[in-house]
Design a protein around this nucleic acid. Structure first.
Lengths: 200, 200
DNA sequence: GCAATTTCGTACCGTTTCGAACATTTTTAG
DNA sequence: CTAAAAATGTTCGAAACGGTACGAAATTGC
């Protein structure tokens, strides 16, 4: 199914993956509304019509960027959470991995595309839906991980720990944007992981 | 000092307080960048030049709205936290009061002006500074309240509880924007308050 | 080589944006 | 009553906005 079919017209030359990465970087740095198509065109090196053909209008570009960011999180940070370790270290490692995404070696954090920029644009129904999905999936992920560590945990107690774990991550996205250092938040993540593990 | 001095020219007729309230409502519903001066003019009933004279440019309007929102929080919700009750109920009452601000009787939450909209506009230095201040003040508020409930608490434990309490509130602002119901978050707030109190 | 087909960027459209210039209105000072 | 002063809304302009029409370029099928 690796299409070897020779297509009829002029072959495409644009690198959509690289372009998408540039979209993610711009959107998470400046949010949805503050970014213009000219900005995106400049960052990707693609003309506005090329962007439009590849990703649709600005809203669908942002939605696609949210998805790409989510995939990046799943591939990069989630394995740390699901590793065969005790809950406290796994959760702490996960937070640290997420912070590596939020800060990306930069002095000033580009931040989280989903938790930090989507809330302000949630009046767009499509954006709100993706934000809801992101939170939901994080809750589910935390639930499965905590349940693995404490299979017999009562549901109330489990809910509390799950929400704590997700809420900590969400808050980190805002704190990173507020100027907190990565070291600061990493320490906070270890503390939080310990507290959450202690809840069970 | 209640100025009875008759000023020289035409007296001002605009209600700056009402206008500011309208600014807060618009900004927290749609964020900073997505709001135009025409939107603000329409919502306040003031002409663009009047707005400009009263509050300066768009950025300073947003900054002033952040301050006004902060004052509203301090006047409305903080007393619940500082009330003479046990920590768990005080914290739970505080979260509930904050959710009343975030939802304002509306089906869809207008949300939190500071935690939900500022992070996406934090590339503006002035906005980032106010966001940082807001988080800092919340941490300080939580610290003083928790310290009152547990004066002999070890600093590590105290830090953990403080950050948990603030992070929960920050996360609520994102969850509210994602479409969660007020009842849902109120329940989560009570659970979180219990968990945080149990950390001491 | 010629037609069909697909990609691509230049140029353009109408709208919206922010901010200011300006005249008008309403008051006090003399 | 006239002049100065302050506040206000109408009007304007230059720039930026999102999005598209259209022709040039590049490839395959015949």
């Amino acid at each position: 199914m690796t299409d070897v079919k020779p297509k009829r017209g002029r072959p495409a030359t644009i690198d959509t993956d690289a372009a998408m990465q540039a979209l993610v970087e711009l959107f998470r740095a400046k949010g949805y509304a503050a970014v213009s198509l000219d900005d995106l065109s400049g960052a990707t090196g693609l003309s506005r019509p090329s962007l439009y053909r590849a990703f649709g209008n600005k809203l669908s570009m942002y939605i696609a960027a949210m998805d790409a960011f989510g995939v990046q999180v799943i591939e990069t940070a989630v394995p740390a959470l699901l590793a065969e370790r005790d809950l406290e270290t796994a959760l702490g490692d996960f937070y640290e991995a997420m912070l590596s995404i939020y800060y990306r070696d930069a002095e000033v954090a580009p931040g989280c595309l989903i938790f930090a920029t989507a809330p302000s644009s949630a009046d767009e129904a499509a954006i709100q839906a993706r934000l809801q999905f992101g939170i939901e999936q994080t809750d589910l992920l935390m639930r499965s991980r905590i349940l693995k560590a404490a299979p017999a945990c009562a549901t109330t107690r489990l809910d509390a720990a799950v929400h704590m774990a997700t809420n900590t991550l969400i808050a980190f996205s805002a704190r990173a944007k507020s100027g907190a250092t990565k070291a600061e938040l990493t320490k906070m993540g270890r503390q939080s992981a310990r507290s959450i593990a202690a809840l069970l």
